[in-house]
Write a protein that binds this DNA or RNA. Structure first.
Length: 277
DNA sequence: AAGCACACCTGCTAGC
DNA sequence: TGCTAGCAGGTGTGCT
């Protein structure tokens, strides 16, 4: 479900409702929700702790606990974190519940069960979740210079779309925003990363920053199935500004010719063959 | 070693 | 109306 803008929107919501709250009780019912450790260990490491900060690393949400441990969540395709009164109705596919000391509850809901939770000592992260520590620059908080971007692009020989999806290159970009970035930069997503021209790299640099900033501003994108909602169940609005994503056959905003869908890296990819080269 | 295909799940929708 | 093939915001694994 969520890419950087959606995860960032959830993070900002969690900052408001979680920081300073003590977790009075934790219950995990989903059998696939905790995969990197024993479920009982996650419960033991969270119950009785107070949340001191909520950070984002790529698409991971990281809650710092006053015990020194971190509670980490990844929503993958269909995960949601929802916050509300502890006596509120339970949504289907609720796999974990965290009871807070103010009468509210944080719930992890995930129909496809790809999402996950784990709670560890940060010193153990290299062993438990190495990829979380191997992410590239963050377009929202750590944009790189144009020469640094050029160097990183030259290090791989893979389609630009695939390069953008690789979290080791850019942290937090996924299928929607990689297409939107390529469209704004007017580059073919199949263009090999190590063959971009100087002007293309400059445009790509601007596009990465601009698309992600605008999508965060819009509180992310919610598609037709309304899977993505923020902590309070509210939708984002960036889907109203999509240039190409999901617009197969509809006119390109630049030239009016139909947007084309292709499969790249086993994902749907949308682009304008005329404007993107 | 890098690059690529596939597996992991459930639910919704378009098309017959 | 009812069935089913196809598709969905991601990433870990295993192959070449």
């Amino acid at each position: 479900m969520p890419e950087l803008p959606e995860v960032e929107t959830v993070r900002r919501g969690l900052l408001e409702v979680l920081v300073g709250r003590r977790i009075d009780d934790t219950r995990v019912t989903g059998t696939r929700t905790v995969r990197r450790q024993d479920r009982a260990e996650l419960m033991a490491r969270t119950i009785g702790t107070t949340v001191t900060d909520v950070r984002r690393i790529a698409k991971y949400l990281v809650a710092d606990l006053d015990s020194g441990d971190v509670l980490v969540a990844h929503l993958r395709m269909s995960g949601q974190l929802l916050h509300g009164p502890a006596d509120g109705p339970l949504a289907p596919h609720t796999h974990a519940r965290f009871w807070l000391d103010d009468g509210n509850e944080l719930r992890f809901v995930d129909p496809r069960t790809f999402g996950e939770l784990f709670a560890v000592d940060p010193a153990d992260l290299p062993a438990v979740a190495p990829t979380l520590l191997e992410v590239g620059f963050d377009p929202l908080t750590g944009m790189v210079t144009v020469p640094a971007l050029a160097a990183a692009l030259a290090r791989r020989r893979t389609p630009l779309k695939v390069w953008l999806l690789d979290q080791r290159n850019v942290a937090g970009v996924g299928n929607i925003y990689s297409d939107e970035i390529c469209a704004l930069a007017r580059i073919d997503p199949l263009r090999r990363s190590d063959t971009l021209t100087r002007p293309q790299i400059k445009r790509l640099h601007e596009a990465i920053g601009a698309i992600i900033a605008a999508a965060v501003e819009a509180r992310g994108s919610s598609l037709r199935d309304a899977q993505y909602v923020d902590l309070m169940g509210q939708s984002g609005s960036y889907q109203e500004r999509f240039r190409v994503y999901g617009r197969e056959g509809l006119p390109c905003h630049g030239c009016g010719r139909p947007v084309v869908r292709r499969v790249i890296a086993q994902r749907s990819s949308y682009s304008c063959p005329r404007c993107q080269r």
